[in-house]
């Protein structure tokens, strides 16, 4: 079964996206760093079943903490066919640095701009098409807690898998 890994810094809603995809419940937490243990689940997209891995929060590909080390070894050793890089849409300036790192590494990334409702509340809008062109990878706006954008995410995952896997 091919694998999809969810990565991103703590507290951007990785676990919520995970739960939305897999339907099962892992601890949804507001507290940075609670995802010390790695959750795995199954998800069916299109005609295919995937194993979805919820990795511990990491700030960069250069690990400082134990959790980040775990996160990196999942990315490198488990050979996922797609990384969902979940970021906080309010703070993409700070978050994109890690996206760039993942891209430099040649890893297959799909950028998930999560908690988009909070960005909107701040009056922030993001031009997804422009972002996709800049990074040359797909990007989706989501509100994990309300399930918004999940259909588009699934669609883009399916498209990616068809083209590259």
């Amino acid at each position: 079964m091919r694998k999809i890994a969810i990565v991103g810094s703590p507290n951007v809603g990785k676990s919520v996206i995970f739960n939305n995809l897999t339907g099962s419940y892992a601890d949804v937490s507001n507290y940075p760093g609670t995802t010390v243990e790695v959750s795995r689940g199954k998800c069916r997209i299109g005609e295919e079943d995937f194993e979805v891995i919820d990795t511990p929060g990491m700030y960069s590909l250069l690990p400082i903490s134990e959790e980040e080390k775990v996160g990196r070894s999942i990315l490198l050793d488990e050979n996922p066919c797609l990384l969902l890089h979940v970021v906080d849409a309010k703070n993409i300036e700070r978050m994109l640095s890690m996206t760039l790192q993942l891209l430099e590494a040649g890893l297959p990334v799909l950028l998930v701009l999560n908690v988009f409702d909070e960005a909107q509340a701040l009056g922030i809008d993001i031009d997804t098409a422009h972002l996709e062109k800049e990074l040359k990878v797909p990007a989706v706006k989501t509100v994990g807690t309300k399930g918004a954008g999940m259909d588009i995410l699934r669609g883009k995952i399916e498209e990616h898998v068809k083209r590259f896997c």
């Binding site: 994109l96 790192q101 509340a121 009056g123 031009d127 800049e134």
Partner: peptide
């Protein structure tokens, strides 16, 4: 290295985001 990367991230972020009216924060 991370400074250079952050500069690129800031450039992209500035290019793709628009900030409108402030919400009630």
């Amino acid at each position: 290295i991370s400074e250079r990367r952050q500069r690129e991230a800031s450039r992209i972020a500035a290019a793709v985001t628009t900030v409108g009216k402030k919400g009630s924060l």
